[in-house]
Design a protein around this nucleic acid. Structure first.
Lengths: 248, 248
DNA sequence: CGTATTCTTGACAGAACTCAAAAGTGGTGG
DNA sequence: CCACCACTTTTGAGTTCTGTCAAGAATACG
């Protein structure tokens, strides 16, 4: 059992780092204390499975810390990542017992888990959790659709550039850092995980990352840290138009 | 102005063919009459754009009849379909003014439109629409994720087989027809639309449809009608395991 | 019946995959 | 501190699948 477990358990929701982004974002103090009663923290080590596809789930929850992946696997072993879970992202589907996907911790992950039945009851009885969950699900659907364009129509080079810009966008958002003179991102994914994300082989990923490095689009700082000197340039390489899409 | 317009307008929601599947499925009679006040029908011809990406939308709504597509297009013209809208599917995103996608009628389409502002207000004030919309959005997210596996990891032949099984599944569901001794489906998509769905070129689609026909997996009945003598066989070709996944 | 789409088929090219080996990285224990 | 092992990453060579370009056939439509 890891340290973070006990640390988190002692603090209330008000000190929670994802308080204003997660499924509980809009809850008032009554709702929050109700959530506190049904919640517990759980920590998973890097590489550990959080949920197996087909498993019965008796909880839903939010990623508080770390990164997890949602993957689907065919009988012959071909694997496709269908979701990348960062802090504040929701795991599980209210109203459904089993999981349709494998959920795996990529780094150490702290989950804030809610027992499923009480959570579902709360969704029926108070509006804020359901509303927030709808909003988050619509955002995820938009992300999934953007991803479909990447998977279906982009070249390997564009796919890599797209992945890096998505991660850069999400991590700058989480960390509120300025993006003016270059962005630095921690890439917590192996080449294989990137390949599973993008529908490529790990060899192709490696080749294209090298090519982007050679062309000065990205700079590798150690193994898993990537500097993006010019975000505009990366977006061009990704085949996106330079403005960042619709305002939310 | 088409006949169906005036026909639909005269009937109340109770006679609506999608009454029990659409966003209004769970509404009680009070909520239904409130919806009736903000709704209007609109018909689009085959090929007509219902919404352009980036357009301001002043309505949301449900497909009542016909088939529409959701597509995303890159600057250089590469196009990816990101949603296939059948009767009862919802169009538009509450809380967002602009559309992120092009919505196009593939056949003649009848939409049941709700003015956006009153609809959003109703979502705040009564629970049933929001709950149903959450459920539908979660279903769409699952479908999008299944599709991501198709786009990222399946071969051209498997992609075609997957598309046909998805359409077969959805149309048998809509029409409640038995699937025992072969299924017949109307394929309302051109080869180009199929290609945009699957991230292929129309030539590859044509070749693989011919191949599946040659191998007896499907039988073409005219141009757009397809018979599937053995559904199990088609599912094998799609690379799916034979049981139909999780029960809903 | 002619024109415009849509679809099919062929030949060829190219991007990504497969198989294979070498190089780099990190952790462990002697 | 270094040797060793497991794992990840890189790079190379050859193959394959799908895309591209082009022409012809089928179908729909006025």
């Amino acid at each position: 059992m890891l340290l973070s477990d006990t640390l988190m358990a002692k603090e209330g929701c008000s000190a929670c780092p994802i308080r204003h982004r997660a499924v509980c974002a809009r809850c008032d103090s009554d709702e929050l204390s109700r959530l506190e009663e049904m919640k517990y923290y759980r920590t998973y080590e890097a590489g550990q499975h959080i949920i197996w596809s087909g498993d019965r789930m008796d909880f839903v929850g939010s990623v508080v810390k770390g990164i997890a992946t949602l993957t689907q696997t065919m009988e012959d072993g071909r694997t496709q990542m269908v979701g990348l879970l960062l802090p504040s992202d929701f795991v599980g589907r209210p109203g459904r017992e089993g999981s349709a996907y494998d959920v795996t911790a990529t780094t150490e992950v702290v989950m804030c888990c809610f027992r499923r039945k009480p959570f579902e009851r709360m969704m029926e009885e108070t509006p804020h959790v359901a509303h927030r969950l709808l909003q988050m699900t619509l955002d995820e659907l938009d992300a999934a659709r953007e991803w479909m364009l990447v998977l279906g129509r982009k070249t390997a080079r564009e796919k890599i550039a797209s992945l890096l810009s998505i991660i850069a966008r999400r991590s700058t958002l989480l960390e509120q850092q300025a993006a003016d003179d270059g962005v630095a991102i921690d890439l917590p994914l192996t080449r294989e995980a990137m390949a599973d994300y993008l529908g490529l082989t790990l060899e192709t990923v490696s080749r294209q990352v090298s090519a982007l490095k050679r062309d000065g689009v990205i700079v590798l700082d150690g193994k898993r840290r990537i500097l993006i000197p010019d975000m505009e340039r990366l977006l061009e390489e990704a085949g996106d138009d330079s403005d960042g899409g619709l305002p939310v």
